[in-house]
Simulated scan of single mutants.
Amino acid sequence: MPKKGNRKRLKFRAVDVCSESVTVADYADSDPAVVKSGRVKKAVANAIEKEVKLLCGLEASHGAVEEVLSSAGNIKIDGLDSSDDLDAEEGAIGETKVIHKKKSKRRKESRESSDGQDYPVDIWLMLSSYIRPEDVCRFSLICRNAWMVTCTTVFWTRLYRRHYRMDVDLPFWLQPDCIDRTCSLRARVIRSLFHLYEPFSSRVSKIPAFPESTPTSLLNSKCLLFWIKKMTGTRPEGLWEFNFKFLKQQNKKNGRAKSLRMPKQYEDVHTNSNTDCYMLQVSTFNFIFTPVVMGMTLTLFTINVSTDMRHHRVRLVFQDSPIQRGRKRGDYGSTQVVLDPVHSVRLLDWWHPQYPLSQ
């Protein structure tokens, strides 16, 4: 019997090897039962290498084809492990690093040269006279000078005078005589726009008497004030209004970007004692005795159907401290307020025209 070493090996030619003759069994991820070695045969690899060189015109470059074949399936090719090839690879890697450094430097220089022109504040102040109220935030995000303009007294005074109409009945503290005061100018102008500016006033008029879903923004909010008053001149007659003023809890995020510091000369313009405050107004058909909840934290707020199946029922649960994240709410030591039957439920922001304010 002939020895195993004398078996005649099959010879592959580059002309015979094409994309159709290469099978799945020639790759490293193939079934080990088909290919026991787990890698491409040397003859097939050399034939594929020659064909790729001929197609790509890379007869002179030996390292580029090697990179393509090795990155395609982590294929180990025999005969390419010599020290000369390693040195050639290291040289090619060094050249690519230098090229990448040059490209990154050029890109950095092009970015610095294409930053644009820095316009003075006077130009941004002139452009601000044509900004709509709903675009003030977008305008302030253009650049630092545009943001500086939105901090000035001139910007908010012009915005108020541009939309002021004498036929609109404004509260006393929103009249033009009070607008001339610098303190809380921004807050007063924003409140006046919900009376004067049609897109804002129509938005307020479309707010329903009952929210579509129970608001979750009040959870873990602190009750600052609480009072009850009887409403007169309303339909139906004899409604009682329960007012809860809440201060929304501020969530501090780690890694938050530092905000721009407000100039000292414009700090009074942006002063607002009602920032992050909400007013919950619940109207009932009769007077309901409720405990004192000022200084407590709201941990539960639900709106359900009343017992008579014709109205609504509001339930508020207060605790001495807010619920920490990840912990369940406990009824121990809590104060419960149940209002039933309810006529309407409204959640008012500080800029709402019906937000109770005396300044």
Rank of each mutant, 00 (worst) to 15 (best):
R261G: 06
P263V: 05
K264Y: 07
Q265N: 00
Q265F: 10
Y266K: 01
Y266A: 07
E267D: 10
D268A: 13
V269H: 03
V269F: 00
V269I: 07
H270Q: 11
H270S: 14
H270D: 09
T271R: 01
N272P: 01
N272V: 02
N272R: 07
N272F: 03
N272E: 10
S273D: 07
S273I: 12
N274P: 01
N274R: 02
T275W: 02
T275C: 10
T275P: 01
D276V: 08
D276F: 11
D276N: 13
C277I: 09
Y278K: 06
Y278V: 05
M279Y: 01
L280R: 04
Q281Y: 06
Q281F: 05
S283C: 14
T284Y: 00
T284W: 05
F285H: 03
F285W: 02
F285R: 08
N286F: 13
N286M: 12
F287Q: 14
F287G: 02
F287R: 01
I288N: 00
I288W: 00
F289Q: 12
T290A: 12
V292F: 11
V292Y: 08
V292I: 11
V293H: 00
V293R: 01
V293Y: 03
V293G: 02
V293F: 01
V293L: 05
G295P: 01
G295C: 00
G295V: 11
T297G: 03
T297E: 14
T297L: 06
L298K: 03
L298S: 01
L298G: 03
T299F: 09
T299H: 09
F301T: 03
F301E: 10
T302A: 08
T302K: 10
I303V: 10
I303N: 03
N304L: 14
N304C: 06
N304H: 04
V305G: 08
V305C: 07
S306W: 04
S306L: 01
T307W: 05
T307S: 12
D308W: 06
M309K: 11
R310Q: 14
R310P: 05
R310D: 09
H311T: 12
H311N: 12
H311A: 09
H312W: 03
H312R: 12
R313I: 11
R315Q: 14
R315I: 13
L316C: 02
V317K: 04
F318S: 06
F318A: 02
F318C: 02
Q319T: 10
Q319L: 11
Q319H: 05
D320N: 08
D320V: 09
D320R: 03
P322N: 00
P322G: 05
I323A: 05
Q324G: 15
Q324E: 13
R325P: 04
R325G: 09
G326L: 15
G326W: 00
R327Y: 12
K328S: 15
K328P: 07
R329W: 06
R329S: 13
G330K: 13
G330H: 13
Y332W: 11
Y332R: 12
Y332C: 14
G333Q: 10
G333W: 06
S334L: 10
S334R: 08
T335F: 08
T335K: 08
Q336P: 00
V337I: 06
V337S: 04
V337G: 04
